[in-house]
Amino acid sequence: MAAPVVSPPEAGQDGPQRRTDPGLRHRLAERGIDSHLLLLVPAIVFIIGLFVYPFLYGLGLSFQPQQGGSPFADYQRFFSDPYQRDTIWKTLGLAIPAALLNVLASVPIAYRMRGRFRGKRLLMIVLVVPITLGTVLTAEGLLNFLGPAGWFNRTLISLGLADEPVQLINNYWGVFFSLIITGFPFAFLLISSYLSGIDPSLERAAATLGAGWWDRFRHITFPLLMPGLATTFCLTFVLAFSVFPSAILVGNPAGETRVISIAAYQAAYEQYDYPMASTIAMIMGAVELLVIALVLLWRSRFYTGATGGKG
């Protein structure tokens, strides 16, 4: 999209003159290059030093297997071992349903909580509380609450809904619940901020033209909210995909919740095989970016820009 900068012919004339030459500055400014871009410099230095360089370093490391052999030996090792390969499916099987549920549940709740009502502030604060918990604390709470002697199973048994404790921890469901508890408030906060950025007078205009609440939601609010929803899905998906502490603590880290981050961690900090750890990390990133890219591709088909909020 952006054309490469072609330096104008007179750029190479004499140095001191060039600085004050209004022609060159003007021409560069027309292409969008002026002193404003200096605001971007600290961020670019930061991102190259702390993200791009380490990432390329890790990528390079993944092609230098510890045992020698071809550059792709570690990738072959990962994909030929079902114990390692299946971690991809286990991770996706946890992350996609959890992220979808978080986003889809947040939309109606946030939509309903736009208006004014008594106790709204308190309810918002309570809903936001789980963010403060963090995955580790949630894991601790879930072990107590959903465990065989916990309050949840006790309630089920005394209500006659179950004869014996339901196994909800140290398996898939324990991790899934921990993803909901930490992910839902996050999705909710983001979506309600996107919703409050949509000018309510747009909806009122539709109402005066006779649109019912469903039509207003479907044709006014939802399309404007769509980019926000896609972003929120991506962020909650990232949170869910990188599930690590709760998969160890409330899951079954040797079996059904041996997610890919556990495989990477074990390679790096238990076997000290950094090339293999980098390989797994790169595969993890590639799988995740694939999902994100699909969502963002879909998002780009929607309107982005001002949503009429008053700044």
Binding site: A2, G32, I33, A43, L59, L235, A281
Partner: peptide, 28 residues
Amino acid sequence: FPGKRLVYLAFLLPILMPPITYGIPLAT
């Protein structure tokens, strides 16, 4: 400005990647 998409992508990537993915090379 020229290269804006590239810059934007570079800023988006860390937030779209699992912390473990870049955390292990970064820690190294």
